[in-house]
């Protein structure tokens, strides 16, 4: 117990969850069910939205896209039980031009402020995901998780009363783009391992949260319909693209993701992560019951 206390881990407190997302819908599609489940059992969930999503729309100006994405992000968060959303406001899909340490240090601030017991971050080691914002955000968030616990990072934060904080549980999330995502790391300790979470009870909530992103969902649907039409194909659902057909397409997407993640597991609907918890960072022989 001494070791847990020394690491700043309070064993019995209600979980505090900090979710970092690059673009607003990312965390919903990859981890929304798990997060909703934690919120439903009393966890205080806070969301950090790194980009402003300005490019993810169909024929809308960046300004209008930002306005809508902000509203929709708040609506989706509410559906999942997220308490508050902090927007860092970086331009969407342009994170390659932003200082890594700047993003990291802003995340350190929020980690030290909220003192989470659980963090969700984009998995920067996921391959074949073309949205590179997720890579940049994941790299910065991973380093923020580490550096937030160290005294010598950001002395001004300490001067402002924020102490170093180690978050004991870390979930790396991603949509299942990477065919090698389930391969184990070289050792079962001290590194993130595959973890599967049953989200059947939260699936409807996840679908509704994903549907809240009307602006980016319309972009996805219209782009898909346009591509199919230009190549002599059609998707009957999108014969007419309207709110109803878009919502149905999003539902199919979320159900499809849950099914892919549940393959070869005991679950009907799942989310999968690379997970680094206490059990991976502290060898069993050093852990003791309360």
């Amino acid at each position: 117990m001494f070791l847990l206390s020394a690491l700043g881990i309070a064993a019995a407190q209600q979980p505090v969850v900090l979710v970092v997302t690059a673009d607003a819908p990312d965390y919903v599609l990859a981890a929304g069910g798990t997060i909703a489940g934690m919120a439903a059992t009393g966890a205080a969930v806070h969301l950090v939205r790194v980009t402003n999503d300005e490019k993810d729309s169909w024929k809308l100006s960046p300004e209008e896209t930002i306005r809508r994405a902000t509203e929709e992000s708040l609506a989706a968060a509410k559906i999942l039980g997220v308490r508050d959303v902090h927007a860092l406001g970086y331009r969407g899909y342009d994170l390659g031009g932003v200082s890594f340490t700047e993003i990291r240090d802003r995340l350190i601030f929020l980690i030290r402020h909220y003192k989470p017991t659980v963090m969700f971050i984009p998995n920067p080691y996921t391959e074949f995901d073309r949205v590179v914002d997720r890579f940049y955000t994941g790299r910065a968030a991973e380093d923020a998780w580490r550096a937030a616990a160290l005294e010598n990072y950001q002395p001004p934060y300490a001067d402002a009363g924020m102490r170093p904080h180690l978050t004991p549980e870390l979930y790396y999330y991603a949509q299942p783009h990477d065919p090698y995502r389930r391969e184990p790391e070289s050792t079962a300790t001290f590194v993130p391992q595959p973890k599967f979470v049953d989200i059947a009870a939260q699936l409807d909530r996840k679908i509704r949260a994903a549907q809240a992103f009307s602006t980016s969902n319309e972009n996805m649907a219209r782009r898909l319909a346009e591509r199919l039409a230009s190549t002599g194909r059609t998707l009957p659902l999108l014969a007419t693209v309207n709110d109803g057909s878009i919502a149905k397409l999003v539902e199919e997407n979320v159900r499809g993701l849950a099914a892919v993640n549940a393959k070869e597991t005991p679950h009907r609907a799942a989310e999968e992560f690379r997970y680094a918890g206490v059990e991976f960072r502290i060898p069993r022989k050093y852990r003791s019951a309360r």
Partner: peptide
């Protein structure tokens, strides 16, 4: 390593394979 046209939508792969029709 080949990325196909709809690989960016992993949740819709099976659905699109089933539902998309030729005109």
């Amino acid at each position: 390593y080949f990325l196909d046209e709809f690989d960016y939508l992993p949740g819709l792969q099976d659905y699109l394979a089933r539902e998309v029709k030729r005109r």
